[in-house]
């Protein structure tokens, strides 16, 4: 397999090129799973460049979009064990907050790393996070807040999770421009990151998936 070409097309966000390369590999009878793994390794590079602030939101979105398209080609060919997600994550922006972009980037990076992500959107009530985690058997809830007045909703969600008796089964990670590690600690969140790649690392850490 031409791993370098696949990674290069993915990092450059070249959707059509990447899909063509993937189809080519498939016709060479390359295993769908190893193609997927190569793309994930590529997304990993995108993540570290984003973290180092060498690339920014547009580049990440283009890479994520290319990866999604190429993954759709592979999906029908992957076996059940191939697509076993690393874990299930429910994400959303908390009640009273209409910001969307940063949380979506976190979702894409998590998907790129092999997680199943259920994105509840913005202005999400604490109860909905709990219900969604319960219904889908998610082990992580990711809460985003971009305005200081909506931050207490993060705490409220954690409290509700406790009341529902699920606090031991579900980890809560928090993020967003005004959110800090101190704040995360003060509300009893399990993890905080100041950007999307850090969020993926945090989730892996919490689920003991660190390589």
């Amino acid at each position: 397999m031409n791993e370098e070409s696949i990674k290069t097309a993915l990092i450059a966000g070249q959707e059509k090129e990447l899909c063509d390369l993937v189809k080519g590999e498939l016709s060479n009878e390359e295993s769908p799973k190893s193609i997927l793994d190569t793309m994930m390794a590529g997304m990993n590079i995108v993540g570290s460049r984003f973290q180092a602030k060498e690339i920014f939101i547009p580049e990440v979105l283009f890479s994520a979009r290319a990866m999604t398209s190429a993954t759709n080609i592979l999906k029908p060919l992957l076996t059940k064990s191939d697509v076993q997600p690393l874990g299930k994550v429910v994400i959303g922006t908390v009640l009273g907050d209409l910001h969307d972009i940063g949380k979506n980037v976190v979702g894409m990076m998590l998907e790129g790393a092999g997680f199943e992500v259920l994105n509840l959107g913005r202005d999400v009530a604490p109860e909905r996070f709990i219900e969604a985690a319960k219904e889908n058997g998610a082990s992580i809830i990711g809460l985003s807040s971009l305005i200081t007045t909506s931050m207490p909703q993060m705490k409220r969600t954690i409290e509700l999770l406790e009341e529902a008796g699920l606090r031991d089964q579900v980890h809560v990670i928090v993020g967003g421009a005004p959110v800090t590690q101190d704040y995360a600690n003060s509300i009893g969140a399990d993890g905080y990151a100041d950007e999307a790649t850090g969020a993926v690392q945090k989730v892996k850490e919490l689920l003991h998936l660190e390589q």
Binding site: A52, K53, E54, I55, F56, I57, P58, E59, I101
Partner: peptide, 11 residues
């Protein structure tokens, strides 16, 4: 602020 100077979210 970034190590390469100020940048917007879009770079």
């Amino acid at each position: 602020p970034t190590p390469h100077g100020p940048r917007t979210m879009m770079g």
